Simulated scan of single mutants.
Amino acid sequence: MGADLVTALIGAVIAGAAGLLLGKLNAFKKKKGRSPLWLGALLFAVVLIGLLYFEERPDETGQTDGGGKPVAGTTISAPYVRAEGEMLVHYINVGQGASQLLVGPTGKTMLIDAGNNDKEEMIVAYLQRAGIKKIDILVGTHPDADHIGGLDAVIDHFDIGQFYMPKVQSNTKTYEDVLLAAKKKGIKVDSAKADVNLKWDSGATARIVAPIGDYSDTNEMSAVIRVAYGETSFLLTGDAESKSETDLVASGTNLKADVLLIGHHGSNSSTSDPFLERVGPKYAVIQSGKNNYGHPTPEILAKLAGKNITVLRNDTSGNIVFVSNGKSLDIKLDPWEYIKGKAK
């Protein structure tokens, strides 16, 4: 039974009980001139229960943790306003694609990927809605269209600081459009590779940990970035698959993260057991939409559930925003959508 139906049934029961008791009170008053105290107290208790249930109950995100329990988060109707000293990590709902917006504790911004070509208007609108004026660091994890399709629009509409992409050749128009947009604005494309410390926000650290080697598969060449703020950390993986994951584990680099972006939209080609063990996340975010690939696969979901990792998904919860104060994490869910030139 769906959560909305359960809520409606409970509401109906509470309202019915309150109406019945109110009717009894009125009947006693008409017949005897007054109503018994116990009946008034019972009515008060029913109303109080209703208020507590509907005002204090946590939002149900539609997500489940590793044990199948609903994840409690706060649904927001407007962009979350960052408080001083907070870091935000937005997992933007771009459908079958990926995009993450980071706002550091001092306000510096980083955008990693920008969804597919048909999400150009949407990604620009999302950034504008969030009050973004400049992208201090822009990253295209690898040349696949569902990751870099919107980057040219971002370059056209915003001031860009540094721009990173791995050294991968591609002859697609999407890739060429991104390079042309950068060239028109005189933006240099720096190489995204392992052991690059990004000069981003003074309150946080950001380090590219992969690709470590040269791979024939463009997915394996994905830029993987670890971001840490205080005691909290995030690992953002692009479409990195098992070969890159194996090399990362063997390298001994710090992969520990509270929040892991599941590689390749939840494909079986990523999230290998040794890699997942090394990262040890509390939360896993899956960026996927309607697709014919079976993403995320039942095997990956079962693996995460078996390790009691809380799973959040764009395809069921919309935009997902993690808020870090350097010690703990809070989850905000933003259902905002942009469809056919109109936000809703």
Score class of each variant (00 low, 15 high):
Ala182Trp: 08
Leu48Pro: 04
Asn26Val: 12
Thr64Gln: 03
Val209Asn: 09
Ala18Ser: 07
Leu151Gly: 01
Lys134Phe: 05
Gly150Ser: 11
Ile135Cys: 04
Ser99Val: 13
Asn319Arg: 07
Leu88Ala: 02
Ser251Phe: 05
Gly294Ser: 04
Met87Leu: 10
Val285Cys: 13
Glu176Val: 09
Gly230Arg: 03
Ala3Pro: 09
Ala41Val: 15
Lys69His: 14
His142Val: 11
Gly306Leu: 00
Thr218Ser: 14
Asn308Cys: 03
Pro143His: 12
Ala210Phe: 03
Glu120Gln: 15
Lys332Ile: 11
His265Glu: 12
Lys340Glu: 15
Leu20Tyr: 13
Asp177Ile: 07
Leu236Cys: 02
Glu220Tyr: 00
Ile49Met: 09
Ile148Asp: 04
Leu304Met: 14
Gly263Ala: 07
Leu42Glu: 09
Leu180Ile: 15
Thr141Leu: 04
Asp113Gly: 12
Glu84Val: 13
Thr297Ala: 11
Val311Ile: 10
Ala41Phe: 08
Lys307Glu: 06
Tyr164Ala: 06
Asp201His: 08
Asn325Thr: 13
Gly50Gln: 02
Thr106Tyr: 14
Gly85Leu: 13
Gly140Val: 01
Gly107Leu: 14
Asp330Asn: 10
His90Gly: 05
Asp214Val: 13
Ser99Asn: 04
Arg313Gly: 00
Ile309Asp: 01
Gly161Cys: 01
Pro79Asn: 05
Pro70Ser: 10
Tyr175Gly: 11
Thr64Phe: 12
Ser233Cys: 02
Ile10Thr: 11
Ala223Thr: 06
Ala182Asp: 03
Ala17Tyr: 02
Val279Met: 01
Ile10Leu: 09
Asp214His: 14
Ile300Tyr: 01
Thr271Gln: 02
Lys282Met: 04
Asp144Leu: 10
Gly19Cys: 14
